[in-house]
Amino acid sequence: MITLTHYLVASALLFAIGLVGILTRRNVLMILLSIELIFNAANLAFVAYARAWGDVGGQVVVFFIITVAAAEVTVGLAIAVLLSRQLKTLNADEISLLKW
């Protein structure tokens, strides 16, 4: 019998994998991909709760999350293209313009 908890744990697993990606990869594009994984973990939790409570509102929220993710990727990838064009690197450790 599959319950809400199963879906939530799957969502938490996806979130943790995305977190590993953000913490261990240094390439800007890989960090963006890991952020996508985390977005999808949130989507899964929202849809699971939408079914548990019988409320379609959770699915509407997923619609908004997908829109925000698309906007984030557009700007993020534009910044990545700029970084590789001007700084000749995509390594997040080497991009320290704002640090000092």
Binding site: L8, A12, F15, A16, V20, L23
Partner: peptide
């Protein structure tokens, strides 16, 4: 090591 450990702790706490 640091990334994997912290994500593991996070996942255990979350579940």
């Amino acid at each position: 090591t640091a990334g994997t450990l912290s994500a593991l702790v996070f996942f255990l706490a979350l579940s």
